[in-house]
Design a protein around this nucleic acid. Sequence first.
RNA 1: GCCCCUGUAGCUCAAUGGAUAGAGCAGCAGCCUUCUAAGCUGUUGGUUGUGGGUUCGAAUCCCGCCAGGGGCGCCA
Length: 602
Amino acid sequence: MFNRERDRLEAIIRNYYAEKGLPEPDAIQWNAIPFAGEWGISTSFFQLAALEARRGANAPGTPIPERAQQIALEIADRIGVPAGFSHVEAVKGYLNLYYLTSEFTSRVISTVLSEGQDFGRGMTKSERVMVEYAQPNTHHSFHMGHFRNAILGETLSRLVEFAGFPTIRASYPGDIGLGVITIIWMYQKFYFGQEPQGVHERGQWLLKLYVEASRLFEPKENESPQEKALRETYDAERRELYRKWDAGDPEVRALWKMTREWSLEELRVILDMLDIHIDVWFFESEVDQPAKAIVEELIQLGVADDERPEGPVIVRIDEKLGLKKEKYRTNVILRSDGTTLYLTKDLALAKEKFEKYGVDRSIYVIDVRQSLYMQQTFKILELWGFKQAEKCYHLGYGFVSLPEGAMSARRGRLALFKDVYDEALRRVLLEIEQKNPDLAAEQRELVASQVGLGALVYAMLSVDNNKDIVFDIESALNFDGRTGPYIQNAHVRASSIIRKAGGLPEVAPYEGELTNHEIQLVELISRFPATVQQAANEYRPLILASYAYDLADAFHSFYHAVPVLQAETEQTRASRLLLVAAARQTLANALRLLDIAAPDVM
RNA sequence: GCCCCUGUAGCUCAAUGGAUAGAGCAGCAGCCUUCUAAGCUGUUGGUUGUGGGUUCGAAUCCCGCCAGGGGCGCCA
């Protein structure tokens, strides 16, 4: 936020380097002074000293830390105390410049309050980004693994968008495949005409059919010849159904469409609950035909080898790339019966994204287990001559399992999002009953939903992308400490103070000596814009999630230690009220990017 | 066999190659007639899996080893 001061300092430092004939580094690295309650910027001279020593210049034989300290001292002397700073010191090879806190605080607060919801937003950029996430299979129910994916994709989208990039949100449900066909077969054979009432009930019922069907297709131990024959008959029926679907049989397609819609309806309802609004819906079934055309092209180009009818169509990726060691291996892009695969469809989808939607960068938020497939897809695109292949990025994330082990629909070991959500709601309502019994009845449901979701969302975002999550409902629905509700509560407390104050005073210079709590709070607020950029650049919502917690932590400490409404003087009261308003705004902006609601009461 | 990820406090996790490795939970001791106690304050807890290397400086980068997880041609 304070680039002006920085630029001026850098000019002085560079002048000094030039004068002394010191090697000039590409960039001067500034960091925050890492001491609690101190606010300012810092840089060090170890690299410079090391560079100098390597060239054998100036003071030969001086240990690097000592030489760094010499330089720091000389520069401190040269700089003096620039405008806007209270004091400057050279310590252990570091140059520390401390802000005049009241002046900087005034600037931070007026910036936040005038920019409001846009505080922290990056300059608009021209590069258009598409984020693909929310790819659950239809005919299944939305579970906590899908939830992590949806939240990660959504927060990433919000971050990238807020950082200044035009952003398109894309969903890609897997609406066809043998699993889907299996459920339709089950429905047609044993449950034809049935239909449970209720959006979630219907979705979960299809999952039940899948579990039942899986049992029918699993060979039993000591299977009798009759049982085996029956199983094989069923399997033949199922394959025939898939063939019919592929051929466009109207009856099969109608059945498929109806059940598919049941799933999609539930998906839309859940995404709506999560405040996720997808711009573009792609379906696997829709890229099926274009994918086949690409396969033909790849065969013509000699990229793919057609081994039909004995085998499938494959791409020997390493060989085509001229690699000696196996890395991307070989993959099948068309079955011997001419039907497409998951990877094949992704080739067609990539083309559509870039050409139809004009995106410049394409991010895939997909489970890390599909890493190899993603790399293979990108490499085949490259071999095909698709230049934008290098603009495709797979954001992998660790999968969600349960304390009992991996989730498995067939074993009925599944944490369905709707069930977890209902439980969250129940627990938050109990909590409200206990902690805020005065909360108006008509507000309770809404607040409970916001807080429950806040807890669940934060549980997903407080772990880095590449780490697995063992989803334990007890710890996810803990509302104390490093959690969503803790951050929401800071926002609630800030709102409460402003409400009781009956409005905000005019923005004016900050009055009074700042306490350490105030300094720490305002320092964190000032860091928000840079934190947004970093999180967006690194595709890591965790960075913002950690920041939001730190900000809430600083606010809670401030809240406890520093009186606002009861401040000693009217001016101090006014200044602190504005600080509270700035903190509240920054908390709200951070929570919004994290897809967590910022309630005024809880 | 090859490739990828992970290993930090009892547990769950942080830490752009930089100053004293930090939080939460759990444990212990306090704080509600003061702006919401979903909170605050204090405190216990570490050979960063292990052995080398690079560097002025390594949890972080490189190599070996150990342990756990994942992925490797017609599932998605």
